[in-house]
Simulated assay, not measured.
Amino acid sequence: MTDPVDRFAARPLVAHYDAPRAAGEPDLAARLREAFGAAGHDPERLTLDAIAGIDQLHLGGRRASRSLAARGELVPGDRVLDVGCGTGGASRLLAAAFGSEVTGLDITPAFVEVAQWLSRATGLDDRTHFLCADAARVPLPDASVEVVWCQHALMNMPDAAAVLAEWWRLLVPGGRVLLHEVVAGDEASPLLLPVPWARDAATSHLRSRHALEALLTAGGFVPVAVQDVTAAALEWRRKHSRREGEAAASGPALPGPGLIFGEVFAEMGRNLRDNLAADRVRIIEGVFRQSSPPSHS
């Protein structure tokens, strides 16, 4: 069977999202287990509230995921593919709050390992399953999901057209794409780096909203509802920058993104805030429906 991950192509992303491990620290699961224990929580019995700081690594956190799910009109029993699932937070939210059957997919092995553990620890492993695979080569059959869900992942994917072709293949006829994505803004000055999705330009593949929507159209998807949610995302990032500064001075606490990205996360958060404020990046939330076959097929 063909390996669903091109290990060479995945190396820059794995190096970015699991940098502390590459620097010789314990693996991500071990770091998180130790942190939960230090905060007085049994790592094998956790609540969704306890893991909130590490389970949704995108602007807006659980609130943004709930907004996207409502816009996409999810119904119980929908089969959902969560592309770029990270540690699996959106997958668990969709299973717990919306009755979805979710398969999470990520190219970073450490994220998939942690996602599986956190789903077991929160009692959601019967409705969430995780694959380590490239989004352009998903080891699932045709027409196997009603919904493709993607939050802050396409900007890490250099060949978005190939990824969208997979989405079209995997969706049932008339299926939906629910997208919450970082896009390039109108300000042409260079992006302040590092940011949460990239330490340098090699792993950042930002596209303008117009370019992304053109790719979706060429990929056989029509917009149902698309909204710019940058203002809300910026407010959320400003609030969390303040919280992260306070948490750094208050001693042991529940784990947050710093345990995943390392000490550089504080700088990443500030840069993201400033990029949003300067219109170097924007955030869109949208629903797209599968329509005609891709124009390049």
Rank of each mutant, 00 (worst) to 15 (best):
G53H: 10
D186P: 03
Q56G: 00
V195S: 04
A249V: 07
P257F: 00
H16L: 09
A96N: 03
A136F: 01
D3P: 02
L59I: 07
A202G: 12
A121C: 11
A115E: 02
T203F: 03
L118G: 12
A247N: 04
P109V: 09
A50K: 04
E44L: 07
Q151W: 00
A278W: 04
A160H: 09
C150L: 12
V80R: 06
A133K: 11
A121K: 11
V147W: 07
V264L: 02
C85M: 00
V177C: 09
A64D: 09
A278P: 07
S144G: 05
R282C: 02
A201Y: 02
D3Q: 13
R242L: 14
L28I: 13
L178K: 10
R270T: 14
L192M: 11
G269H: 09
L13M: 14
P158N: 08
L178M: 13
G251R: 14
V14M: 00
Q227C: 08
L81C: 02
V183G: 00
C132I: 09
H296T: 15
L32E: 09
L178I: 04
E213Y: 02
G61V: 08
P139H: 08
H296K: 02
N275Y: 07
A10H: 03
L131I: 11
P4K: 08
V83H: 02
R79C: 05
R273N: 12
V83I: 14
L93T: 13
S297E: 13
R242V: 14
D55Y: 10
F111T: 02
A10F: 05
A50I: 06
A266W: 04
A211Y: 03
H16F: 07
A96G: 02
P26Q: 10
E244F: 10
M1T: 12
L215F: 04
P109K: 05
G40R: 12
L68F: 08
R169E: 04
P12D: 13
S91N: 01
F8D: 13
W149T: 11
W197V: 11
A133D: 12
R273D: 15
G174L: 06
V14W: 00
E73P: 00
L48F: 12
G61M: 08
D125M: 04
V183F: 03
A211G: 09
E166A: 06
V163T: 15
A232E: 15
A115Q: 03
W117C: 01
L254H: 05
V229Q: 09
A231P: 00
R7E: 13
A201P: 00
A50N: 04
R62T: 10
R63E: 14
L13F: 13
W236H: 14
